[in-house]
Design a protein around this nucleic acid. Structure first.
Lengths: 109, 109
DNA sequence: GCTTAATACCTAGTGTTGCTAGGGTATAGC
DNA sequence: GCTATACCCTAGCAACACTAGGTATTAAGC
């Protein structure tokens, strides 16, 4: 499954991934792959622009971190607004999933 | 809720709507609104192109019907390929919904 | 008779968004 | 030196839902 299906929900998934703690972009990709059981294997060209978008929207904040070894990492964390947005998106997803389910579940009226 | 969230799933919803019987475009819009409990109130500019797309893809077939009163209607029905596609999409939705749920449900690992 | 609303169809252009394809830097292993 | 992996980025493409317009038919209200 690629992320085309995620259209409109990728931001939600990214916010939820960062809910447990800050992480850099590459780690976000790996965590999404891990937590989705391999369903969402997102290319960098999908995730990095999404992170920038979310930061521009004020839902994430980033800091450059210079580790003793390895190259610089840009670490993203949820802002207060990001946490609020995640709450709304959680509710929105539940409604959405229920509505779509109403079409796909047999015996629905 | 508009259909932006539906991105990538609108076709599935339309196919499911037509699963119970053929219908014309305008009726599809009303049925989707009704069955979603008002959640999906889709503009014509969203649904008509989607119907054309699905017909082009061979998942729907249309017939013009000239009723004794009122203007001509274009009635869409699922093809065999459409029925197959709906089956696949039903499975795909279940996987997708479960995967997204893994991010949004509290206590998920 | 005229206007409005509802039914019913359509399309051109726009904006968002995920993807492809590429490029760059740093570290480790062969 | 070469390759693989970790880590960052962008330009351009394609898909798709939406906006904003258009047309035709019928019935209701004035």
């Amino acid at each position: 499954m690629n992320a085309e299906m995620l259209k409109g929900h990728l931001d939600t998934v990214i916010l939820a991934t960062l809910e447990r703690g800050a992480a850099h972009g590459y780690a976000v990709i790996e965590e999404i792959r891990r937590r989705s059981g391999g369903h969402f294997d997102l290319p960098e060209g999908t995730v990095y622009p999404a992170l920038h978008r979310l930061e521009l929207a004020g839902l994430l904040a980033s800091d450059w971190v210079d580790p003793p070894a390895g190259r610089r990492k840009r670490v993203y964390a949820l802002t207060a607004a990001g946490r609020d947005a995640l709450g709304e998106r959680r509710t929105g997803w539940a409604e959405f999933a229920r509505a779509v389910g109403a079409f796909l579940e047999p015996g629905s009226a």
